[in-house]
Design a protein around this nucleic acid. Structure first.
Lengths: 197, 197
DNA sequence: CCCAACATGTAAACGGTTACATGATTAC
DNA sequence: GTAATCATGTAACCGTTTACATGTTGGG
């Protein structure tokens, strides 16, 4: 789903300027998941206006550039509802953290601990953001998204903490295990395949 | 983290061709998270070779194009370990499912049920993939990644099932709640701000 | 004094996917 | 026969980020 459609969707919730749209996205439940940049929003809005899916009125402001307030048109609303029927694309997920952890055995232990702490902190922050949003959101759809975010971030946090715990505990294991050398199981090697199974 | 670095990392686990690298990525624990295309892998490998971070030997095959096996060089290994020290970028996550669910109230109930079922099925599939990988992975780093994936997907699955459950249960609620009209709380509107707090 | 927030926009760069081009082999 | 797997590569396209350009207001 491209930004164009996301903007369209956000505009079903009320009229907004590009600037406000970005805030709404980032401060809302979707923001705990990803960000957007102006360099993408403004052109998207322009295109939407070209296609007649949104209308735009300029609101003059003293000593500030005109604020361009966009409203979704009936055609835009129809197009958006239509878009909700399209087959959903798979999640596009790229996590440097996960990738880097896949190579934990190549890092100094100190770095490993640092990485884990950072990740725990950021998960806690996202959870806090979602919890703060919860009482403000009366709409069940939004509560669903918040609940989903909360469920997954909490699970990640629990997992991460359990992993880190082992370092600080007297038994001091597990995290150090991560530094053990790595070897792939033959079935993942796929080299000179021996016609398995 | 770009594909170039990911290829470099994967090559620390053993020599491989571009084709095999793609399989390794997709069949391994990282594959339950995202995919890669040849159109990105081959150029990445070429660039890596240009920079002397990997070496390449062509393996002639009867009736097939030469297989180009890449090995990481000492310089490449150093560069990769270096890359593991770089500050980790935030996750880049784009989920059409989550976005669409944010607008559940604009969809027919049937569509909603379909979406939920699809998502549940795909989460179950990913969990199955990770579980299948678990006994094959002796390396603690990889087990960490598998465990993390399992923890989050399981949490999502549980959440999703609980949401769906309410439809099939006699009390038939919650999921239908999602179709209720939506209104943002004033604090998220941000329109004509009344100097809150 | 400087930084953050407000406000819009453009252009270049980036990192990736999709489609195209080519072609043998094996399993159903 | 036809689809999948093996095997590499290029070019066009796409959506997005980053950097640039411009300027005011208000708070620390």
């Amino acid at each position: 789903m491209d930004l164009r459609t996301i903007c369209l969707g956000l505009l079903t919730l009320g009229d907004r300027s590009g600037y406000e749209l970005k805030k709404l996205f980032e401060d809302g439940s979707l923001g705990s998941i990803a960000g957007v940049s102006f360099g993408a929003i403004y052109p998207a809005l322009g295109k939407l206006a070209n296609e007649g899916l949104v209308s735009c009125r300029a609101e003059a402001q003293k000593k500030r550039p005109d604020k361009k307030i966009y409203s979704i048109t009936p055609a835009g609303r129809a197009a958006f509802v239509e878009a909700l029927m399209d087959p959903v694309a798979e999640d596009r997920f790229r996590s440097t953290f996960i990738f880097v952890m896949y190579f934990a055995h190549l890092m100094p232990g100190e770095r490993l601990r640092e990485l884990l702490s950072e990740r725990i902190a950021s998960a806690e922050q996202r959870i806090a953001q979602l919890r703060a949003l919860e009482p403000l959101s009366t709409c069940p759809s939004h509560r669903f998204v918040i609940g989903l975010g909360l469920a997954t971030y909490t699970a990640e946090l629990t997992y991460l903490k359990r992993q880190r715990h082992s370092v600080e505990a007297p038994a001091k294991r597990r995290l150090d295990d991560l530094r053990e050398p790595c070897q792939l199981s033959p079935s993942l090697h796929g080299q000179a395949a021996g016609s398995s199974s």
